[in-house]
Amino acid sequence: ASVAVIAAGTQGNIFATSALRSMRFLQILRMVRMDRRGGTWKLLGSVVYAHSKELITAWYIGFLVLIFASFLVYLAEKDANSDFSSYADSLWWGTITLTTIGYGDKTPHTWLGRVLAAGFALLGISFFALPAGILGSGFALKVQEQHRQKHFEKRRMPAANLIQAAWRLYSTDMSRAYLTATWYYYDSILPSFRELALLFEHVQRARNGGLRPLEVRRAPVPDGAPSRYPPVATCHRPGSTSFCPGESSRMGIKDRIRMGSSQRRTGPSKQHLAPPTMPTSPSSEQVGEATSPTKVQKSWSFNDRTRFRASLRLKPRTSAEDAPSEEVAEEKSYQCELTVDDIMPAVKTVIRSIRILKFLVAKRKFKETLRPYDVKDVIEQYSAGHLDMLGRIKSLQTRVDQIVGRGPGDRKAREKGDKGPSDAEVVDEISMMGRVVKVEKQVQSIEHKLDLLLGFYSRCLRSGTSASLGAVQVPLFDPDITSDYHSPVDHEDISVSAQTLSISRSVSTNMD
Rank of each mutant, 00 (worst) to 15 (best):
L314R: 13
E285G: 07
M174R: 06
G391C: 09
E425V: 09
L469R: 11
S284N: 05
T172N: 05
F243L: 09
P238R: 10
H236D: 05
F456I: 07
C244F: 12
L190V: 10
R205P: 02
P276T: 14
F359L: 03
P230T: 14
V340L: 01
D512G: 14
G455D: 02
W183C: 09
C336R: 09
R237L: 07
R217Q: 06
L196V: 05
M174L: 14
V489A: 13
I343F: 12
V232A: 00
V443L: 03
K254N: 02
G409E: 10
A219T: 13
P213S: 09
S269T: 05
L452M: 07
V296M: 14
H272Q: 01
L360V: 02
D423V: 10
F308V: 11
V287E: 03
F308S: 15
R212G: 13
K365I: 11
S292G: 11
R309G: 12
I403S: 07
A166S: 09
T306S: 13
A498V: 07
S395R: 13
E330Q: 10
P479S: 15
V443E: 06
Q271H: 15
R217W: 13
G405A: 02
G239A: 15
E195D: 13
G209R: 04
I379S: 06
P226S: 04
T180S: 12
D490N: 01
S292T: 10
E195A: 00
E429D: 10
H448L: 01
P245A: 02
E195G: 09
R176L: 02
K270Q: 06
R435G: 02
G210V: 15
E215G: 01
E337V: 11
N510S: 15
D187G: 09
L450Q: 10
Q335R: 02
P479L: 12
S458A: 04
V378F: 01
R317P: 14
D341H: 04
A233S: 11
Y334S: 03
E331V: 02
S458T: 02
K416M: 05
S240G: 07
S325P: 15
R355G: 06
M259L: 06
M432I: 12
S395T: 02
A471P: 10
A177P: 08
M259K: 15
D484E: 13
F193L: 13
K348E: 06
S495Y: 10
T277R: 13
R305S: 12
S431I: 02
R355K: 03
E247Q: 15
C235S: 05
P220L: 11
D223H: 06
P408T: 00
R207H: 14
C244R: 15
V216E: 10
G288A: 15
D512A: 07
E337K: 09
A219V: 07
T369S: 02
I379T: 08
K270E: 08
R309L: 03
Y229D: 10
R459L: 13
Q263R: 09
E337A: 05
H236N: 03
P279S: 07
L211V: 04
K365R: 08
D173E: 06
R364T: 05
C235R: 03
E337G: 08
P293H: 12
L452P: 03
V436L: 03
S319C: 11
V203G: 08
L169R: 06
D428G: 04
S175C: 09
I343L: 08
N208H: 02
R462P: 11
G434V: 12
R228P: 14
Y382N: 07
R217G: 06
D451A: 04
K419T: 11
A165D: 10
L461R: 15
E447K: 02
R352C: 01
A177T: 07
Y186C: 03
R352G: 05
Y485N: 13
Q442K: 04
T398P: 08
V439G: 13
T234A: 05
P293T: 08
P268L: 12
S188R: 10
P238T: 05
S508C: 14
L501R: 15
S431T: 01
L454F: 02
D451E: 07
R313K: 00
C235G: 10
A233T: 01
M259V: 01
P268H: 08
G470R: 12
S171C: 10
P231S: 13
L469V: 07
R258S: 00
D410G: 06
P231R: 07
H272L: 12
A329S: 15
T280P: 13
Q381P: 05
S262T: 12
D304A: 14
A413V: 10
P324L: 13
K348T: 09
G246R: 13
S333N: 04
I503T: 11
R205W: 05
P245S: 06
P213A: 11
Y186H: 04
E368K: 07
G288V: 15
S508N: 10
F302S: 15
R217L: 03
P231A: 13
I430T: 05
S299G: 08
P421H: 07
R313G: 13
E327V: 11
S262P: 11
D187H: 03
Y178H: 06
G470A: 14
E321G: 12
A362V: 01
V427E: 14
V328A: 06
R212P: 06
A166G: 06
P245H: 01
E331G: 07
L338I: 02
A498T: 12
R256P: 07
K254R: 06
A310T: 03
F200L: 14
Y178C: 11
Q204P: 01
S284C: 08
G391V: 14
I351V: 06
V472M: 10
H486L: 07
S497F: 06
A166T: 11
R414P: 10
I430V: 14
S301N: 14
D423Y: 13
P479H: 11
S319T: 09
T465S: 03
H386D: 01
E492Q: 06
D401H: 12
R256H: 14
D478A: 11
A346P: 00
G267A: 15
Q444P: 03
S487G: 13
S422T: 07
A290S: 13
K412R: 07
P475A: 13
V404A: 07
D388H: 01
S468I: 15
P293R: 05
R305G: 14
P226R: 09
